[in-house]
Design a protein around this nucleic acid. Structure first.
Lengths: 267, 267
DNA sequence: TAACTTGGTATCGGCATGCAATACAGTTTC
DNA sequence: GAAACTGTATTGCATGCCGATACCAAGTTA
């Protein structure tokens, strides 16, 4: 099972004290929701309070409020709290208002007709790439297939592709800030080596990785960028048991490039 | 283009005054995010304030706070605000912690191998059904395919299927509360007629609709329910130009029932 | 160029408002 | 049957937020 990279907020960064424009109370509400980032099941009031760094009393009122708005709900067995369905309304807003998603949706559906492997659109968010559109093929279980799943930028095809549009000096800074923990044995974690890989991707116009994030997986990624700013990437992934790397690239890359070109033509 | 059914909060229900446990400030923050429910593009500070029912001053600080946490971002051209990617972290929490989604994911991916039409999992939320898993086939453009998209319960196959597990007296109440506006010409909106349709679905174990929500569309839905409580539905949809209704039902229903059975066996 | 917009940003005092403390009832655990 | 959990409710005091006000920059309209 692949572990997910989480937002910086996963480890509560302590509410910044001195910012006249900062609304603590609002931030606390999001902390309550963020408590579930580390959860493996329903959470009790006390657990929420602990994870959010609040006392039970404060958590209580926040939970009450969030529940009344549908951002939280009780679990089926009524033994704890779960995030509520209202969150999905905001999901829809993010996706439908995102210019990249808007343009990429029809193109990816088209792409999927030509390519019978997994096709994804991921959005660049610094150290991670967040899946926004997922077009499955076979295999793939559980939340690896869910929208909102995010993966590290430095060791995925889409991530490296997105990085390839940035100049080296920016990359050094970024890589320096990133957590370069290897998800699997064999993941490249040396910044200089990564710079080389990314340079190669910049040269080629796409990135390819084998077993850098998931064992047995091969993937190519092509960048989606606007005036030197990485926005996201197209991702095509397959199984090493079915593909020789060169053959995978030979077949997939032209389609992916074409799709990327088509998407970016919309801007 | 299909209009989307929105959360009750779309039309701001005025913050309830007298609730000792209610955290106004937190609720205001979500109002700011909800301002985008009605948006067709980036929103300015003033527009957000107006949509959220706040003055510019309050909106300003809330926006500032939300932006610092990644719940809002500036648009690409830096001319307005958009919902931020942090929202997708919560999306993932909702999906991966939802027991129905957990169990349904592998089953639906399997189902998709047998059925070459659009397959969805939607979650029951009173007057609407929210798509949580989407497994595309062909066609379908734009945000009709996005996670978080919701459709009315009363006129969709999945919705009627979900309703079919409820007793008639509950249904009368529920239907009485729902907004029964017809999305297309020909949509059944008479409560008594709907009760009959739902009763038929209860009898058959599935619901079928033709052109009740989208013109040219045929869909079947089977309910997913736990001890008399509707949780969601499986949805298979196709085109009337390719299918005779009876044939569609004959071919799809067995698969859908099998899948539903398999999912509910996990509880 | 000036007089308007409309955008985003910043500061500050007064009072509503949410924090923290406290208490209680219902379950599950041992 | 006590102990350790749940979730829920009430209240006073200090604090944190609202609302008013002001400012700068970028576009529009004269």
């Amino acid at each position: 099972m692949s572990q997910s990279i989480r937002a910086p907020s996963a480890q509560l960064p302590a509410i910044s004290a001195d910012d006249r424009l900062f609304v603590r109370s609002a931030a606390r509400a999001f902390r309550v929701l963020s408590a579930f980032h580390a959860a493996r099941g329903p959470l009790s009031l006390t657990q929420i309070a602990e994870a959010a760094g609040l006392d039970r009393s404060a958590a209580q009122r926040l939970v009450h409020t969030l529940r009344s708005q549908g951002y939280l709900r009780r679990s089926l067995d009524d033994r704890g709290y779960l995030p509520g369905l209202t969150v999905l309304d905001h999901t829809l807003d993010v996706l439908r208002l995102d210019p990249l998603v808007q343009k990429a949706t029809p193109v990816l559906l088209e792409l999927r007709k030509s390519v019978h492997e997994r096709v994804d659109l991921s959005l660049f968010d610094e150290a991670r790439m967040i899946y926004a559109l997922r077009i499955q093929s076979k295999r793939e279980t559980f939340y690896a297939t869910l929208v909102g799943h995010s993966v590290p930028t430095f060791c995925t095809a889409g991530g490296r592709a997105a990085l390839s549009v940035l100049p080296d000096e920016r990359l050094r800074v970024l890589l320096g800030q990133m957590d370069l923990t290897a998800p699997v044995r064999g993941t490249e974690t040396d910044p200089e080596a990564l710079l080389h890989e990314i340079a190669a991707a910049r040269q080629a116009g796409f990135a390819m990785v084998t077993e850098q994030y998931l064992l047995g997986e091969i993937a190519i990624g092509v960048p989606l960028a606007l005036s030197g700013r990485p926005l996201g990437a197209i991702h095509i992934a397959g199984s090493l048991s079915e593909w020789a790397p060169e053959e995978f690239a030979r077949q997939m890359v032209p389609y992916a490039l074409e799709a990327a070109h088509s998407i970016m033509a919309g801007f």
